[in-house]
Design a protein around this nucleic acid. Structure first.
Lengths: 227, 227, 227, 227
DNA sequence: AATGAATGAGGGTTCATTCAT
DNA sequence: CATGAATGAACCCTCATTCAT
C-alpha cells in the first residue's frame, strides 16, 4: 500500500466515477468495468484500491458521510442557540444533497439497495450523524430550550423528515429547490421539540393558509410521491 | 386461466412465501426456486401467476399496501378529531409493521433496493398513502385544529418520522415495542403541527428527562443506526 | 385408439395447424401450445394423437409426402415416354410446392432443422420418392430413351435440382412462378440424361441468348440466393 | 481488444471446436459449454470472441465458405475451357466436403436448422458461390461452349445436384468416395448444358449399364436416402 | 503498480410433457 | 376422450474477480 499523491488521486478518481455510475444506473445494474472506464483505469486496477464492488459503495459512503459530518460539526461550533443549530443541520443536509445530486441519489436510493453486509458497514458514519443530531437535542433540553422529549424519537423525527424530504425531492420531476424548504421544516421542528417559535419568517404565511392548501391541493401528483 | 378459489389460494401462497423469502435473504439474493419451495409449488408455476421475479415484488407491495390503506381509511371513519386521526395513522402504521415483521423488512429494506421500474410501480399505492396523510393535515388546518403548515412538508415530516422509526426498529437488535413509541410520536406531531397539546400521557416524562438521556446514552449503538 | 370420423378430423386439424405454425415461426421456435390454439384443441389433446412434438413433424411429412407420391404415381400411369414422365415429376413437384406454400416451407426449411431421429423417420417416404425417380430413369435407360447414366447420381441431379429450385423460390422475395421453370428444367434434364431433345418450347430462346444473359445479369441479387 | 496471434489462435480454436461439436450432436443440442471444453477455454471466453451461440454458427459458415470460394476462384484462374471449370467446381466442392466431414455435416445438416436470422447472415457467402457458378455458365454461353440455357436455372441444377450428392453421401452408412462421382456428375452437366461431350472416361460404362442397375438395385436402402 | 484477457459460478425463465379432474 | 394447470429439467449468458504479463 503506497500512499503517494498519485495513489491518492487514483483512489479518488475511482470513487468519483463510482458516484456517477451508481447514480446513473444504480448499484446493482452498474458494472465494475463502467466505473473503471469512467475513472480511466483498467478493471483490475479497481481491485488494487478496493476489496470488491461492495467495498466501493461502503468506502464511498464512509468518505462522503465523513466529510459531511466534519462540515456540519464545524458549522455547529459557531451556533449557540438550539434554533441556529437545528437550522444548520437542516440547511447543511439539504445543501449537501442539492449540490451533489449524484451522491444524493446514491445515498437515498442505492444505499438502501444494499444487503445486510453493506448496511452494517454503513452503520458507523450514519450512527455518527445520529449522535450529532441527538447531542443537539439533548443539550437543547438541558439548556431548557427544548421540551424534555425522548431524544431518540426526536432524532428519528428529524432525520426521518430530512431524509424523506430529500427522497421526495429526488423523485420529483419538478426541480423545486430543496433548500427553500428549510424554513418550513425548521418551523415544524420547533413545534415538535417545544422550542419557543419565532414568528413565521415567510410573510403572509399565517395570513394566507390558502397558499398552503393550494399547494397540497395538487395532491402531490407526480411530485411528492416517490416515483 | 381459471380464477377459482384454488387459484386465488396459490397466488396468495406464492406471495406469502415471497415475503418470507425476501425478508430472510433479501430480494436480490433470493432465488425464485426458494420462493417456489416455500410456497410448495414448482418453479414454473410461479410464472403462471407472475410475469417475473420483479413482478412478485411489485404485486406484493401493491397488495399489502392496498390492504393497509384500506384498513387505515376504515379506522379514520370513526375518528373525529385531528389528534385521534393522527394517532390512528401512527398506531396503524406501527402495528402493521410490528405484526408483519417480514413484510416490514421487505417494505423498509428490500423495496428500496429496487431499480426505477419497481419504484415506479410502487408509486401508486405509496402516493395513496401520502394523499391520505395530507388529507388529514389539510382538514385539520381547515377546521382550525392545526396551524397553517405547508401540507406537503408536514406530510414529509410525518411519513419520514414513521418510516425512520420503523427502520430503526427493524435494524435494532433489542426488540423494544414499536407501538410503545406511538404516544411520544404523537406528542411531537402535535407540536410540529401546532395542535393544542394534551398533557403528556406518560406520567413522569416531563419530570424525568434522564430516562430519555439514558436511552440516547446508548448512543444508538447497534440499535438506532441502520445496521 | 378410436378411429371414428371425429378422431380422424381432430388428427387432421392438428396436422393442418402444425403446418401453418411450423411454416410461420419454424419448428424449434414453435410452441406446442401454438399448434393447439390453431387447431382449437387443448395442449394435452395433442398428446392423445401424437407421441410428442417431434412426432407431429414426422407424421406430417409422412402424411403429405405419402399423398404426394400417390399423386405422382397415379399421374405417371398415363405417361408413356420418359420425357412425359420427367415432365410429370417436375410439374407435380413444383405445383405441389406452389400450392402449399406453408408445407413447402416446412419441407424445405424446417425438416432440415431436425436432428438425426427425425431425419431417420423421414427416410422412408423420401426414399420412396427417390425410388420413384430412379425407376423412371432406369426404365428410360432400358427402353433406350436415355443414355446409360448412373441411376443414383442422375437421381441426385434431378431431385437436387428440383429441391434447390424450390428452396430458391421460397427464399426469393419476388414471387415468380415456380411452375414456369418446368420447361427449362426439363430441357436441362433431357440433355443430362441423353434424351433426344425436343426443340426448345419457348420461342426465341435459342435465337435470343441475350435474354438469358440479361436475366442472369441480375446476378441473382436478392432472389436466387437463399435469403 | 488485442488482435495478436494469440487471440487469433483462440478464435480459431473455438471455431474448430464448434465445427466438431455441431457435427457431433447438432447445433440445437450442442451446449456452449461443450464447445468451450473442446476448445480448452472457459465458457465465458466464448463470449469475448462471439456475440452468442448463433454468432458462432454464422461466423463459422462465413469463414469456411469464404475460404472455399477463395480456393475455387484461385483454381478457376488456370482453367480455360468450360469443361475444366465445371470439373474444378465439382471436384473442389466434393473434395472440400470429403476432407472436412464435420464441416460438411454442419453445412449440409445443421445450417439448414437455423432460423431466419442465421440464414440471412449466411446469405452473402452463399450468394457469392452462386454468382461464381453463374459466371462460369455465362461465360461458357458467351464463348459458344454451352447452349443458351437459363443461367439461374442451370445454376440451381448444378448447385442442387452437388448439394444433394453431398447430403446423400453424408447420410449414407457405406462410405463410398464422394470424389469418385465427379466424372459422372460432369458427364451429366455436360449434357444438361449442351457442352460437346467427351467420350466417357470410365471404360465400360456404356458397355456395362448393369453396374448402374446394380447400384440402384440396392434401392437406396439406407444409403441414398437422407436418413 | 497497472493491465485487461480470461475465468466460471450462478440463476431466471421457457416450454414440452403429464395427469388429476 | 378432453382439458389446461402444473411441472421441473435444462441452458445461455453475465459479470465480478483473478492473475499472467
Amino acid at each position: 500500500m503506497i500512499l503517494t499523491a498519485q495513489r491518492e488521486d487514483k483512489f479518488r478518481r475511482i470513487l468519483d466515477a463510482a458516484v456517477e455510475a451508481f447514480a446513473e444506473v444504480g448499484y446493482h445494474q452498474c458494472q465494475v468495468s463502467k466505473i473503471a472506464r469512467l475513472a480511466g483505469v483498467a478493471d483490475g486496477t479497481i481491485y488494487l484500491y478496493f476489496k470488491n464492488k461492495e467495498d466501493i459503495l461502503i468506502r464511498l459512503f464512509q468518505e462522503r458521510m465523513g466529510d459531511f459530518i466534519r462540515d456540519i460539526r464545524n458549522l455547529l461550533q459557531g451556533r449557540e442557540t438550539t434554533r441556529a443549530r437545528l437550522m444548520t443541520i437542516i440547511e447543511t443536509h439539504f445543501r449537501n444533497m442539492e449540490e451533489n445530486l449524484s451522491l444524493a441519489k446514491v445515498t437515498q436510493l442505492e444505499l438502501r439497495q444494499s444487503d445486510l453486509k453493506i448496511r452494517t458497514a454503513i452503520n458507523a458514519p450514519l450512527k455518527e450523524y445520529f449522535r450529532l443530531i441527538e447531542e443537539v437535542i439533548r443539550s437543547g433540553i438541558e439548556r431548557g430550550e427544548l421540551a424534555p422529549v425522548d431524544v431518540r424519537i426526536a432524532r428519528q423525527l428529524i432525520f426521518g423528515a430530512l431524509d424523506e424530504a430529500t427522497t421526495d425531492w429526488i423523485m420529483a420531476r419538478t426541480k423545486r429547490s430543496l433548500l427553500s424548504e428549510s424554513e418550513e421544516m425548521l418551523y415544524l421542528f420547533e413545534g415538535a421539540l417545544g422550542l419557543a417559535r419565532e414568528p413565521r419568517p415567510r410573510a403572509g404565511r399565517g395570513a394566507n393558509p390558502q397558499r398552503t392548501a393550494d399547494v397540497s391541493g395538487k395532491m402531490n401528483a407526480g411530485e411528492g410521491a416517490r416515483a
